[in-house]
Nucleic acid binder design. Structure first.
Lengths: 194, 194
DNA sequence: GTCTATAAGTAGATAGAC
DNA sequence: GTCTATCTACTTATAGAC
């Protein structure tokens, strides 16, 4: 297929998603117009509709892709439950700091999804929580952790860890490694393995 | 001053704030129109401007009032640092479950505030974090807690506790008292007092 | 694939009647 | 204090030219 004038599909597609991700995270889905996204990409608003059927699908795709990448990135290597938990904690903090916009969006904009899209994303989030809950159950059964309710503890720990994106700034008082160490100490203590 | 036809200022004012709080929490500030708020109250859109100069002030007032009420409601009675921490944990969970919309708004809609309003709310939030950090420092000094960084630990704990609003449903598997007990166990362990 | 132009609707906010 | 009516601007999305 011959290339038409001004056509740059290979780079425009990713740019649209990148601009949408950044703007949605900064100002909120409802507060961002298609024109703003187009301006950030350097095209006119109409051109966006070559890449997404509508604004809602753009948000849903961003959130679903994030959750799928997050789940794919997490690989439980098994073994000692405490070692598995430490890997999870450091993974979650690292991934959250590497992808602050996605993480922010994925728990701030669920309410702006249609019911169908919401259910799909919530299911993916549930799988991630289950991955952590499984580790906590294994630790409790092995007697190296004290966790009365693995599901509740998993949600509590994920909320605690994700919160790092609210205040961490590169170049601040603490570097990433120090922050991860602190959170690991807190998490280990929380599950009775301090 | 004689009452004009249809004037019900005493009840309309609170209703406007209540409707705005509920709708902003449900759908997001940017996604809610003044007309939607007016419809929820049972007046026309123009009437809202008798109670707020504009939409932004409505949001800022809701958030500032929430933070001030939260700070006023928390009373540190001093004494044993562990007892103070337990009171804080149970207070924060109880207050969050009593005021889910306010709590949700206060950390979801900060980005939709003007810089001035944002700074004011952030300062109030900082005071609340400091209240907890002070307890953790006292506990560490007394040797009944192990907390390497009180500020970080305070933010981590508040994020963990606030997360309860994301999943707790009245009438569900766990009641409030059980949930508070679980979170207190997690928090106590996190600060090395398990 | 991207543009321009536009349709059709909604936004926040104000003016003036009552 | 509330209403109706309205201004101006902006919204999502589409149509058709290139």
């Amino acid at each position: 297929m011959a290339r038409t004038q001004g056509s740059r599909a290979e780079i425009t597609g990713p740019l649209v998603r990148q601009a949408a991700r950044r703007l949605f995270a900064r100002h909120g889905y409802a507060a961002v117009s298609m024109r703003q996204i187009a301006a950030a990409v350097g095209v006119q608003a109409g051109a966006l509709y070559a890449y997404t059927p509508d604004k809602q699908a753009l948000l849903a795709d961003l959130l679903r892709d994030h959750m799928e990448l997050l789940l794919a990135a997490w690989e439980d290597e098994g073994g000692d439950p405490l070692a598995r938990l430490e890997r999870f904690v450091r993974f979650h903090i690292g991934y959250s700091l590497d992808h602050p916009d996605e993480v922010f969006l994925s728990y701030m904009e669920l309410r702006n999804l249609t019911p169908d899209n919401h259910a799909a994303i919530a299911a993916l989030r549930g799988r991630y929580e289950t991955a952590l809950a499984d580790i906590l159950r294994a630790g409790a059964e092995a007697g190296v952790m004290r966790v009365a309710d693995a599901r509740l503890a998993a949600m509590a720990l994920i909320a605690m860890l994700t919160g790092v994106t609210n205040w961490f700034r590169e170049g601040g008082r603490l570097d990433r490694a120090a922050v991860a160490d602190h959170y690991w100490t807190l998490a280990r203590g929380a599950v009775g393995a301090g």
